Simulated scan of single mutants.
Amino acid sequence: VVNAPITKFLYLKHLTILISERTFSPPYNYFSLVYFFDASPSLETFFLDVRHCSSYPSKVPHEDVKHESVFGASSHLGELPEQQHNCLKIVEIIGFSSAKSLVELTCCIVKNAVSLECLTLDTLRISGEANKTCWPISNDELKEASRAVVAIRMYIEHRVAPTSKLTVLEPCTRCHSR
């Protein structure tokens, strides 16, 4: 805990955060990103890219990156702060996984973003060019993408307001069938 003044980004409307494999030692707590929503009352769009294996050259193998899964022993989600976000309309998370802190962050966004229009959860963006085959992925990555889809169905989908559009991008069944 650091005793520092709280920074506010009063006029910030669009925020993109890229978390690379270098951030994952020890595993990153995605839920800590809630701070940006509280500090940015004018935020309208939020893009979070947590891909860290297939798209970028990596010094840390994907298998070495361990996050507590929402399906783990303590699968109860943490308490979500009550802080309405009146301007947040578009949220996209690329590389969505079953990491408990990422599911908690997404649930918090869905609960508090009262103006949310579009939520896109991309479990594994691996498509190549149009009408071509997807890039190769490991079986572990494919399994995690499938677990991410289950986590979305169990913990997030039913919380999304009927006025919001939820888009879940799953692995391509043409190229990555089990």
Rank of each mutant, 00 (worst) to 15 (best):
S146D: 10
A113C: 12
L142I: 04
V110F: 02
E157I: 08
L121Q: 01
L88Y: 13
E141L: 03
R153Y: 09
E104S: 05
E104M: 07
K111L: 04
E117M: 11
I109V: 14
G95Q: 02
I109Q: 04
I93V: 15
T133M: 08
K111G: 01
E144F: 02
K111R: 12
T133K: 11
A99N: 10
R125D: 12
L124H: 01
L124G: 01
K100Y: 06
A151H: 10
R125H: 10
I156M: 00
L119S: 06
A130I: 13
E141A: 02
M154S: 06
L121P: 00
C107S: 12
L142P: 00
K100Q: 14
C107N: 10
F96Y: 12
I94M: 06
T106E: 07
P136R: 14
K100A: 04
L142R: 11
Y155R: 15
A145H: 02
T133G: 09
E104Q: 15
P136S: 12
G128F: 06
L124F: 03
S138Q: 05
C134E: 06
A113L: 07
N112R: 07
A99D: 11
V150M: 08
K132F: 11
I90T: 10
L119K: 03
I109A: 05
E104G: 03
G95T: 11
T123G: 00
L88D: 13
C107P: 00
L124Q: 01
K143N: 06
K89D: 05
D140E: 12
S127Q: 11
L142S: 05
S98N: 14
L119H: 02
E157W: 02
T133F: 03
E141N: 06
T106P: 01
A113T: 07
S138H: 05
V110R: 01
T120W: 00
R125I: 15
S97Y: 05
S138M: 04
P136Y: 07
S101W: 11
T120G: 00
A113S: 15
W135V: 04
S115D: 15
I90P: 00
A130V: 14
A113Y: 07
I94A: 04
A151K: 10
A148I: 12
V110Y: 02
K89L: 09
S115N: 15
L121M: 01
